[in-house]
């Protein structure tokens, strides 16, 4: 009896310990974001004070005014949202079409083509970056939205994701529609896509996030400030305002907020998309 009690209380202690450790670790993980948000509301004097304060003493929006005023973050924001939306919509269209062809149409060499296509995912962007840059240069697209959008309009990852999903949809549903004289495209649009909402959502969220967070490509193809995306703007802004951390934190809030908000509501799709792609920072 006593040993049983000792056993359960040892268990309880262990459980409390595990809870404490994991909650502290989770708090430590999100601490930089809390620090970012709190700091973005501090004035310069408070930012420069040492020891640092935790809660803003003189709550101010000055940093945000600077970010959207002098540093033209509004413009960067519009650029990023436009480019990320365009690529996302474009990929939903191109990947759906290609995935449907790979999942349902019969033609010679289909599987070979599909595997070659998948193979392109093994090539790191750093290998294709230089010639892609040259192509955009020859096309006269450097420093335009096209340079940011067009290379992203196809995705082996997206095609693969949707193809796998389409394959799991029973064929009988389509056959009935064909009997009724529905075209291929009609079947895709009216039957397959409405049934594929979870896969489409995963792809959309994943793509939007990847494009919104992209840095290296924007760094390479953009020159003029009015074309900058939020991430590029923030990186340049960091050089310019080296230690004005209040301003920089306001910029960081701006650069992370949309993704954080979407993540809050659609965590599942983020985790699915990122796990599937094995994406690395």
């Amino acid at each position: 009896m006593t040993t049983m009690i000792a056993h359960t209380s040892a268990r309880r202690i262990k459980s409390v310990l595990a809870h404490t450790v994991i909650y502290v670790a989770a708090a430590a993980t999100v601490m930089p974001f809390v620090w970012m948000i709190l700091s973005s509301f501090k004035d310069l004097g408070e930012i420069l004070s040492f020891p640092p304060t935790w809660w803003p003493e003189n709550f101010t929006f000055e940093n945000y005014k600077n970010a959207f005023g002098a540093a033209s973050f509004g413009r960067f924001y519009a650029n990023s949202l436009f480019v990320a939306s365009a690529v996302t919509i474009g990929q939903l269209v191109t990947c759906s079409l290609a995935a449907y062809a790979f999942a349902r149409m019969r033609f010679r060499g289909r599987n070979v083509l599909f595997y070659l296509f998948l193979g392109t995912m093994m090539v790191p962007i750093h290998v294709t970056m230089i010639p892609s840059f040259m192509i955009l240069h020859w096309a006269g697209w450097i420093d335009t939205y096209a340079a940011l959008i067009v290379p992203g309009l196809a995705s082996a990852f997206g095609t693969f994701l949707l193809r796998q999903f389409f394959l799991s949809i029973p064929r009988e549903l389509e056959e009935a529609a064909f009997m009724d004289g529905c075209s291929r495209f009609g079947v895709l649009w009216r039957i397959i896509l409405p049934l594929s909402k979870p896969a489409l959502a995963t792809l959309a969220i994943f793509t939007f996030m990847a494009v919104f967070n992209d840095f290296i490509w924007a760094l390479i193809v953009l020159n003029t400030e009015e074309m900058y995306t939020v991430q590029l703007g923030l990186a340049i802004f960091r050089d310019r305002y080296a230690t004005e951390w209040g301003n920089l934190m306001a910029g960081s809030v701006v650069a992370t907020l949309p993704i954080l908000i979407v993540f809050f509501f659609a965590q599942k799709y983020f985790i699915q998309g990122i796990t599937l792609s094995g994406l690395k920072g």
Binding site: A25, A26, A27, T29, V30, P32, F33, W35, M36, S39, M209, F212, N213, F215, V230, Q231, L232, L234, A235, R238, W245, L248, M249, G251, S252, A255, T256, I259, L260, F263, F264, Q267, F270, I271, I274, G281
Partner: peptide
């Protein structure tokens, strides 16, 4: 799980700026 996953989804640029501070 969401807390531990948050750093993954935010941009590396913003994360680096925060950590620089």
């Amino acid at each position: 799980r969401a807390a531990f996953f948050t750093p993954v989804i935010v941009s590396t640029v913003a994360a680096a700026v925060i950590w620089r501070w």
